[in-house]
Design a protein around this nucleic acid. Structure first.
Length: 272
DNA sequence: ATATGAGCCTGTATGC
DNA sequence: TGCATACAGGCTCATA
Protein backbone atom coordinates (compact mmCIF):
# COMPACT_ATOMS: atom_id res chain seq x y z
CA UNK A 1 0.00 0.00 0.00
CA UNK A 2 1.84 3.00 -1.22
CA UNK A 3 2.25 5.64 1.40
CA UNK A 4 4.31 8.72 0.84
CA UNK A 5 7.69 6.97 1.05
CA UNK A 6 6.63 4.41 -1.55
CA UNK A 7 5.32 7.11 -3.86
CA UNK A 8 8.53 9.08 -3.51
CA UNK A 9 10.60 5.95 -4.08
CA UNK A 10 8.55 5.20 -7.17
CA UNK A 11 9.08 8.72 -8.43
CA UNK A 12 12.83 8.52 -7.97
CA UNK A 13 13.00 5.01 -9.42
CA UNK A 14 10.98 5.71 -12.53
CA UNK A 15 12.18 9.17 -13.42
CA UNK A 16 15.55 8.27 -14.97
CA UNK A 17 13.78 5.97 -17.42
CA UNK A 18 11.09 8.38 -18.55
CA UNK A 19 12.96 11.65 -18.46
CA UNK A 20 12.84 13.38 -21.85
CA UNK A 21 11.41 10.24 -23.39
CA UNK A 22 8.82 10.48 -26.09
CA UNK A 23 5.62 8.50 -25.72
CA UNK A 24 5.21 6.58 -28.96
CA UNK A 25 2.25 4.49 -27.91
CA UNK A 26 -0.32 4.57 -25.16
CA UNK A 27 -3.04 2.09 -24.32
CA UNK A 28 -5.69 2.30 -21.63
CA UNK A 29 -6.80 -1.22 -20.87
CA UNK A 30 -9.03 -0.42 -17.94
CA UNK A 31 -10.34 3.14 -17.71
CA UNK A 32 -12.45 2.39 -14.69
CA UNK A 33 -10.24 3.53 -11.85
CA UNK A 34 -11.36 5.55 -8.85
CA UNK A 35 -12.43 8.08 -11.45
CA UNK A 36 -12.59 7.23 -15.14
CA UNK A 37 -9.39 7.75 -17.09
CA UNK A 38 -10.24 10.63 -19.49
CA UNK A 39 -11.45 9.47 -22.91
CA UNK A 40 -8.83 11.41 -24.79
CA UNK A 41 -5.98 10.33 -22.53
CA UNK A 42 -4.15 7.85 -24.75
CA UNK A 43 -4.63 9.98 -27.84
CA UNK A 44 -3.35 13.17 -26.25
CA UNK A 45 -0.25 11.45 -24.92
CA UNK A 46 0.93 10.24 -28.30
CA UNK A 47 4.11 11.92 -29.44
CA UNK A 48 4.53 13.88 -26.21
CA UNK A 49 7.79 14.05 -24.36
CA UNK A 50 7.94 13.62 -20.59
CA UNK A 51 9.50 16.70 -19.10
CA UNK A 52 8.87 16.34 -15.42
CA UNK A 53 7.82 14.00 -12.66
CA UNK A 54 7.17 15.54 -9.27
CA UNK A 55 5.16 14.61 -6.24
CA UNK A 56 2.55 16.45 -4.18
CA UNK A 57 1.26 14.47 -1.20
CA UNK A 58 0.78 10.99 -2.63
CA UNK A 59 0.06 12.25 -6.12
CA UNK A 60 2.57 11.91 -8.92
CA UNK A 61 2.56 14.90 -11.26
CA UNK A 62 3.65 14.24 -14.84
CA UNK A 63 4.61 17.20 -16.99
CA UNK A 64 4.66 16.99 -20.78
CA UNK A 65 6.50 19.05 -23.39
CA UNK A 66 3.35 20.80 -24.58
CA UNK A 67 2.57 22.24 -21.18
CA UNK A 68 -0.04 19.62 -20.40
CA UNK A 69 0.25 17.46 -17.36
CA UNK A 70 -1.55 14.73 -15.53
CA UNK A 71 -1.93 13.40 -12.03
CA UNK A 72 -1.50 9.83 -11.01
CA UNK A 73 -2.41 8.35 -7.64
CA UNK A 74 -1.34 4.81 -6.78
CA UNK A 75 -4.29 4.32 -4.47
CA UNK A 76 -3.76 1.39 -2.19
CA UNK A 77 -2.42 -1.21 -4.52
CA UNK A 78 -1.00 0.69 -7.47
CA UNK A 79 2.51 0.46 -8.82
CA UNK A 80 4.57 1.68 -11.76
CA UNK A 81 7.00 -0.56 -13.53
CA UNK A 82 9.15 -0.41 -16.65
CA UNK A 83 9.05 -3.47 -18.84
CA UNK A 84 9.78 -4.59 -22.35
CA UNK A 85 6.68 -3.99 -24.49
CA UNK A 86 6.57 -7.65 -25.47
CA UNK A 87 6.40 -8.81 -21.89
CA UNK A 88 3.11 -10.54 -21.15
CA UNK A 89 0.48 -8.31 -19.62
CA UNK A 90 -0.28 -8.97 -16.02
CA UNK A 91 -3.80 -8.88 -14.80
CA UNK A 92 -4.58 -5.31 -13.67
CA UNK A 93 -2.07 -3.63 -15.96
CA UNK A 94 -4.43 -0.77 -16.71
CA UNK A 95 -2.29 1.77 -18.51
CA UNK A 96 0.66 1.23 -20.83
CA UNK A 97 2.94 3.93 -22.16
CA UNK A 98 5.57 2.85 -24.68
CA UNK A 99 8.59 5.12 -24.77
CA UNK A 100 11.04 5.84 -27.56
CA UNK A 101 13.70 4.10 -25.49
CA UNK A 102 11.95 0.84 -26.27
CA UNK A 103 10.69 0.41 -22.76
CA UNK A 104 7.15 0.51 -21.54
CA UNK A 105 5.83 2.16 -18.42
CA UNK A 106 2.98 0.18 -16.88
CA UNK A 107 0.48 1.27 -14.28
CA UNK A 108 -0.74 -1.74 -12.35
CA UNK A 109 -3.49 -1.47 -9.75
CA UNK A 110 -5.54 -4.50 -8.62
CA UNK A 111 -7.94 -2.61 -6.39
CA UNK A 112 -8.32 0.34 -8.71
CA UNK A 113 -8.34 2.91 -5.95
CA UNK A 114 -5.79 4.83 -7.94
CA UNK A 115 -6.47 7.42 -10.60
CA UNK A 116 -5.09 9.10 -13.70
CA UNK A 117 -6.45 12.55 -14.42
CA UNK A 118 -5.60 15.53 -16.56
CA UNK A 119 -4.19 18.54 -14.90
CA UNK A 120 -5.72 21.73 -16.17
CA UNK A 121 -3.33 24.46 -15.16
CA UNK A 122 -1.08 24.51 -12.16
CA UNK A 123 -1.11 21.38 -9.98
CA UNK A 124 -1.79 23.42 -6.86
CA UNK A 125 -5.04 24.66 -8.37
CA UNK A 126 -6.46 21.24 -9.06
CA UNK A 127 -9.50 20.30 -7.01
CA UNK A 128 -7.74 17.28 -5.57
CA UNK A 129 -4.74 19.30 -4.47
CA UNK A 130 -5.94 22.78 -3.61
CA UNK A 131 -7.05 21.98 -0.08
CA UNK A 132 -3.95 20.08 0.93
CA UNK A 133 -1.85 20.96 3.94
CA UNK A 134 1.94 21.24 3.92
CA UNK A 135 4.37 18.52 2.93
CA UNK A 136 5.62 16.71 6.04
CA UNK A 137 9.21 17.00 4.87
CA UNK A 138 8.87 20.65 3.93
CA UNK A 139 9.76 23.77 5.92
CA UNK A 140 6.22 24.81 6.72
CA UNK A 141 5.44 21.66 8.69
CA UNK A 142 6.49 22.87 12.12
CA UNK A 143 5.43 22.35 15.71
CA UNK A 144 4.08 25.89 15.84
CA UNK A 145 1.95 25.23 12.76
CA UNK A 146 0.63 21.94 14.10
CA UNK A 147 -0.04 23.36 17.54
CA UNK A 148 -1.92 26.32 16.10
CA UNK A 149 -3.92 24.17 13.74
CA UNK A 150 -4.89 21.80 16.55
CA UNK A 151 -6.20 24.55 18.81
CA UNK A 152 -9.65 23.60 20.05
CA UNK A 153 -9.76 20.38 18.07
CA UNK A 154 -11.04 17.33 19.89
CA UNK A 155 -10.25 14.73 17.27
CA UNK A 156 -7.77 12.06 18.31
CA UNK A 157 -4.29 13.14 17.36
CA UNK A 158 -3.93 10.15 15.08
CA UNK A 159 -6.91 11.16 12.97
CA UNK A 160 -5.63 14.71 13.05
CA UNK A 161 -2.24 13.96 11.52
CA UNK A 162 -3.88 11.69 8.96
CA UNK A 163 -6.06 14.58 7.81
CA UNK A 164 -4.61 15.78 4.50
CA UNK A 165 -5.82 19.31 5.20
CA UNK A 166 -3.49 19.34 8.22
CA UNK A 167 -0.47 17.63 6.74
CA UNK A 168 -0.26 15.34 3.73
CA UNK A 169 1.25 11.94 3.31
CA UNK A 170 0.87 10.50 6.78
CA UNK A 171 -0.95 7.24 6.22
CA UNK A 172 -2.27 4.76 8.71
CA UNK A 173 0.94 2.83 9.24
CA UNK A 174 3.18 5.84 9.68
CA UNK A 175 0.71 7.59 11.93
CA UNK A 176 0.96 4.78 14.47
CA UNK A 177 4.72 4.63 14.11
CA UNK A 178 5.24 8.37 14.50
CA UNK A 179 3.01 8.61 17.56
CA UNK A 180 4.90 5.76 19.15
CA UNK A 181 8.19 7.53 18.63
CA UNK A 182 6.80 10.76 19.97
CA UNK A 183 5.36 9.03 23.04
CA UNK A 184 1.89 10.38 22.34
CA UNK A 185 -1.27 8.31 22.83
CA UNK A 186 -3.16 8.04 19.54
CA UNK A 187 -6.47 8.89 21.19
CA UNK A 188 -5.28 12.08 22.83
CA UNK A 189 -7.28 15.11 21.71
CA UNK A 190 -5.24 17.07 19.18
CA UNK A 191 -5.96 20.35 20.93
CA UNK A 192 -4.60 19.08 24.22
CA UNK A 193 -1.02 18.51 23.21
CA UNK A 194 1.65 20.98 24.25
CA UNK A 195 3.91 22.78 21.82
CA UNK A 196 6.84 20.83 23.19
CA UNK A 197 5.19 17.52 22.50
CA UNK A 198 4.16 18.72 19.04
CA UNK A 199 7.83 19.35 18.50
CA UNK A 200 8.53 15.71 19.20
CA UNK A 201 5.69 14.68 16.91
CA UNK A 202 6.94 16.73 13.98
CA UNK A 203 10.41 15.27 14.43
CA UNK A 204 8.96 11.76 14.65
CA UNK A 205 6.81 12.12 11.53
CA UNK A 206 9.78 13.40 9.58
CA UNK A 207 12.10 10.68 10.86
CA UNK A 208 9.71 7.85 10.10
CA UNK A 209 9.17 9.07 6.56
CA UNK A 210 12.81 9.83 5.84
CA UNK A 211 13.95 6.45 7.10
CA UNK A 212 11.31 4.70 5.09
CA UNK A 213 12.29 6.53 1.92
CA UNK A 214 15.89 5.53 2.56
CA UNK A 215 14.81 1.92 2.95
CA UNK A 216 12.67 2.09 -0.16
CA UNK A 217 15.76 3.20 -1.99
CA UNK A 218 17.48 -0.02 -1.09
CA UNK A 219 14.62 -2.51 -1.29
CA UNK A 220 13.01 -1.05 -4.40
CA UNK A 221 16.11 -0.13 -6.33
CA UNK A 222 14.99 -1.92 -9.47
CA UNK A 223 11.98 -0.66 -11.38
CA UNK A 224 12.89 -2.62 -14.47
CA UNK A 225 11.15 -5.83 -15.38
CA UNK A 226 10.16 -6.36 -11.82
CA UNK A 227 8.69 -9.79 -11.40
CA UNK A 228 7.91 -9.78 -7.70
CA UNK A 229 6.15 -7.13 -5.74
CA UNK A 230 8.17 -4.35 -4.20
CA UNK A 231 9.33 -4.81 -0.66
CA UNK A 232 7.01 -2.34 0.95
CA UNK A 233 6.39 -4.68 3.85
CA UNK A 234 9.98 -5.24 4.73
CA UNK A 235 10.19 -1.93 6.47
CA UNK A 236 11.07 -2.17 10.10
CA UNK A 237 8.00 -1.21 12.06
CA UNK A 238 7.94 -0.72 15.82
CA UNK A 239 4.27 -1.06 16.67
CA UNK A 240 2.18 -1.40 13.53
CA UNK A 241 0.65 -4.86 13.31
CA UNK A 242 2.38 -5.94 16.52
CA UNK A 243 -0.55 -6.30 18.88
CA UNK A 244 0.36 -8.47 21.86
CA UNK A 245 4.08 -8.27 21.19
CA UNK A 246 6.41 -6.59 23.65
CA UNK A 247 7.16 -2.90 23.27
CA UNK A 248 10.75 -2.43 22.11
CA UNK A 249 11.25 0.22 24.75
CA UNK A 250 9.56 -1.05 27.90
CA UNK A 251 8.37 -4.58 27.17
CA UNK A 252 4.68 -3.86 27.73
CA UNK A 253 2.22 -5.50 25.38
CA UNK A 254 1.41 -3.46 22.30
CA UNK A 255 -2.31 -2.62 22.16
CA UNK A 256 -4.60 -2.50 19.15
CA UNK A 257 -7.67 -0.29 18.87
CA UNK A 258 -9.81 0.98 16.04
CA UNK A 259 -9.77 4.69 15.48
CA UNK A 260 -11.83 6.16 12.69
CA UNK A 261 -12.31 2.68 11.20
CA UNK A 262 -8.56 2.17 11.11
CA UNK A 263 -6.33 -0.24 12.92
CA UNK A 264 -4.20 1.60 15.42
CA UNK A 265 -1.30 0.25 17.44
CA UNK A 266 0.41 1.77 20.44
CA UNK A 267 2.24 1.06 23.67
CA UNK A 268 -0.10 1.84 26.58
CA UNK A 269 2.87 2.50 28.83
CA UNK A 270 5.12 4.65 26.62
CA UNK A 271 2.39 6.69 24.99
CA UNK A 272 0.36 9.14 27.01
C1' DA B 1 -17.25 24.21 11.44
C1' DT B 2 -16.10 19.69 13.07
C1' DA B 3 -16.73 14.88 13.44
C1' DT B 4 -18.24 10.46 11.83
C1' DG B 5 -19.45 6.91 8.56
C1' DA B 6 -20.07 4.93 3.87
C1' DG B 7 -18.19 3.51 -0.24
C1' DC B 8 -14.97 2.66 -3.99
C1' DC B 9 -12.36 -2.54 -5.18
C1' DT B 10 -10.06 -7.06 -5.06
C1' DG B 11 -6.35 -10.06 -3.14
C1' DT B 12 -5.38 -12.53 0.88
C1' DA B 13 -6.41 -14.77 5.07
C1' DT B 14 -9.64 -16.99 7.91
C1' DG B 15 -13.60 -20.13 9.31
C1' DC B 16 -16.84 -23.61 8.14
C1' DT C 1 -11.51 -28.88 -1.43
C1' DG C 2 -14.59 -25.20 -1.91
C1' DC C 3 -17.32 -21.52 -0.37
C1' DA C 4 -18.43 -17.44 2.35
C1' DT C 5 -16.92 -13.72 4.97
C1' DA C 6 -13.81 -10.21 6.98
C1' DC C 7 -10.30 -7.25 6.38
C1' DA C 8 -6.90 -4.09 4.50
C1' DG C 9 -6.40 0.76 2.96
C1' DG C 10 -6.35 6.55 0.86
C1' DC C 11 -9.44 9.47 -0.19
C1' DT C 12 -13.84 11.94 -1.13
C1' DC C 13 -18.40 12.62 -0.23
C1' DA C 14 -22.65 12.62 2.51
C1' DT C 15 -24.70 13.09 6.77
C1' DA C 16 -25.17 14.45 11.78
Amino acid sequence: MPELPEVETTRRGVWPYIRDRKIIDCVVHQPSLRWPVPDNFAHELLGRQVKGLTRRAKYLVFELDNGLGFLMHLGMSGSLRLTEPIQALRKHDHLLMTLDSGRQLRFHDPRRFGCVLWLDGLPAAHALLNHLGPEPLGDSFTAAYLHGKAKGRKVPIKNFIMDAAVVVGVGNIYASEALYRAGIHPKRAAGRISLTRMERLVTAVRAVLVESIAQGGTTLRDFLNESGEPGYFKQSLSVYGKAGQPCLTCGSEISAVRLGQRSTFFCPNCQR
